[in-house]
Every structure is written in structure tokens, then in C-alpha cells.
Computed example of a mutant assay.
Amino acid sequence: MRTPRIVTARTSRRALVAAVVAAAALSATSSNAPADDLGELLPDERNTIEVFEKSAPSVVFVVNRGVHRDLFTWRTTEYLRGTGSGFVWDRQGHIVTNYHVIEGASQVSVVIDEQDYPARVLGAEPKRDIAVLAIDAAAAGRARPLRLRPVVLGDDRNLRVGQKVLAIGSPFGLDRTLTTGVISALGRDIVGVGRVTIPDMIQTDASINPGNSGGPLLDSRGRLIGMNTMIYSKTGSSAGIGFAVPVRFIRRIVPQIIETGRAVSAALGASYFDDDVVRRLGLNGVLIRRVYPDTGAAQAGLRGTRQSRRGRILLGDVIVGVEGQQVRSYDELYNALDRHQPGDVVTVHYLRDGRREKAKVRLSAL
């Protein structure tokens, strides 16, 4: 029996080409469909239709292009690396999507109402798989101002398993495709493309396929509660197990990227050895490589790894806990610190020469 795997939901070039004919047929069919009387439909159907019609204009199609240079002629050729989804953040042209959707792109564009607009990557936080784009309508030669409808932000703190959700995106290049389902589980901790755990992800059985990455997961009132990011599948297509990044991370990180071009994280003010190095040394925790001057870690007296005058390696402090939360790896340290803001004072537990000690550390901005 094959082991199911976690895969991101970005559409590959082959899948996109295979969907072109189907997309054209679907567009023609939907555009000619008569307007039904909503009063004849069930309340749940009316709700689904109303949420889609209100929210669909906020959802965009994101295209990731690369450039190939011929080693003999030095000519460059543009090619399609993949596609995904995104949603409008504000009327100034900021678009939110997954980092893995635009990762490695030479050029990025955003398709809105069948119009292609060039975009630039303002910044990203790979550890939460979030990226922010800025579209440039003027560069596309559009005379009319671009009318954007920002998504309505919700809250993921009071979600319940069984609650209705709607996913809108561009699976296999079929833009503004709607699927519905329920919240299947909450609090899923899954390692993302940034190689650290994204905590409290929302699990849903709403169909999510390649191309849905970066699209919104909405509640029954059309409010954003998460961003569709990955699926659990044997084949790479939907198996009814999809995951979304909670909106609280998006609320915090996106404004930071828009304002400064990067996400701001709370940090101790030190660098660390890779986890595999620590394990080979027979240690359990996070080994400090270096403590940066004029940081909270330096002021608290934490020590980095150093070399004695005789050339002997003296190991630094091994962090084993933050605010009572056990720390056994860099992943756990990052997520423990991510619960706090720069300027907060936290209690750090560490091992020094085999003795367990603790110190108060004021967090710096990373």
C-alpha cells in the first residue's frame, strides 16, 4: 500500500495545458446559463450562490513564468513554471498567495477578469507559505483604473468541526472554480515548504486540487478563514483531505510585508546549528552557534559555541524550553517564539555544561 503524501496544490505546466479545452467549454457554458430564481432553491443553495457571487471577484489566477537561457546561443526563452490562485487584499493592488506558487519565478502575472497584469513580488514568509504581490495596471497599458474587490477578513479562533466552508480557486487552470465542504479537523500541525511546522492548519474535505494553492477558504458568510495550501493525497489530486493556513497568520504577516517588504519575527538574537549536527553530538535541544551583540540573548548572558586558545571547541548553550514549552528542535523554537512579539520578555531554559539554567530574554525583531 502506497503511503499518502503531502503535496502543494500548484498546477504544473502539463496539467494546465491539458485543461485549456475544458476551460474554454466551461466558460462558454457558464456564460450562457440563464439566471435562476433563487427563491426556488434550498436555503443552503442560496447561501452558496450568494457567497460565491460576492467573493469570486476577489479571487485571481496567478501565473509563474521562468526564463531559460541556451548555453550555446545565449538566447532566452520564457516558459510556464506553474500556476496557482490568490486573492485581493486591498484596492491598492496587493494580492496574497502562497509562497510556493511564486517560488523561483522570473516573472509573475495576475489574471483578473481574463486580463493579464504583470506583478512583482513584494515579499514573502516561506515559513508560513505566504507571499504578497503588487500588480501594475499601468505597465499593462490599461487606460481604465483597475477596480478591485478586497476579500472580507474573518477569524479562525472560534471555528468548529462540521462548519460549512467554500473554496474558490483555479484547479488545473480553471479559474474561479467553487468547491464546498466542511471543516474536517482543526489544529493540524504540518511541515510546510519553509521546512518548519505551520501550526493549527484547517483541514477540509472541500475539493482542493493542483492550482487551488493560494486561494481563499471562506466561511458561510463569505469571510476569509484560511488560505488553501496543500493536500494529503496518493495521486496528487484531491482525496478529500486539504489544508489551509489560518487567517490569523495572514492578518499579521501581510501588512508587515506591504509596509517593510518582509515579515517581522520575534528572535532571541542568535544563530543555531542544524538539528542533525545537534543529534550527532548526542544533545536534545537547539545548540547556539553564535550570539549577536546588542541583542536580548547577549544581554541575558547566553553563550554561543566558541574555540579556546588551545583550539578546543567549547559548545554553547543548548536551548530546551521557552516559557515552559519544551524545545527539542529549531522547528519547535521558531514556533515557540512566533507566539510572541519583538520586545516581549520570555523565559528561556537552557543547558550549560550539563546544568539546567534559565534567563529572561527580551526578544528582538528578525
Rank of each mutant, 00 (worst) to 15 (best):
11 T>E: 13
13 R>N: 07
17 V>C: 15
18 A>N: 13
27 S>K: 13
33 A>L: 11
34 P>N: 10
42 L>A: 07
48 T>K: 04
49 I>S: 10
58 S>H: 11
63 V>H: 06
64 N>I: 05
69 R>W: 11
70 D>W: 07
80 L>K: 00
81 R>F: 00
84 G>Q: 12
91 R>H: 10
95 I>H: 04
96 V>E: 00
98 N>W: 03
108 V>R: 02
119 A>D: 13
120 R>A: 15
124 A>F: 09
128 R>Y: 08
130 I>L: 12
134 A>Y: 05
135 I>H: 10
139 A>H: 13
141 G>K: 07
143 A>V: 15
152 V>Y: 04
152 V>M: 10
160 R>N: 14
162 G>H: 11
167 A>V: 12
171 P>S: 06
173 G>C: 14
173 G>F: 03
176 R>I: 11
177 T>M: 02
180 T>A: 15
187 G>Y: 05
188 R>H: 12
189 D>Y: 05
193 V>A: 09
201 M>V: 00
204 T>L: 09
211 G>Y: 02
218 L>P: 03
225 I>R: 00
228 N>E: 05
229 T>D: 10
231 I>G: 01
233 S>D: 14
237 S>L: 13
238 S>G: 03
244 A>L: 04
248 R>V: 14
259 E>H: 08
264 V>H: 03
264 V>F: 07
265 S>F: 12
268 L>Y: 03
273 F>I: 15
275 D>M: 06
278 V>P: 07
281 L>C: 01
286 V>Y: 05
294 D>T: 09
295 T>V: 13
301 G>Y: 00
303 R>V: 01
311 G>I: 13
311 G>R: 10
318 V>T: 11
325 Q>F: 10
335 N>D: 01
339 R>Q: 13
339 R>I: 03
341 Q>F: 06
345 V>R: 03
352 R>P: 01
354 G>L: 04
355 R>D: 06
357 E>F: 08
363 L>W: 07
366 L>R: 14
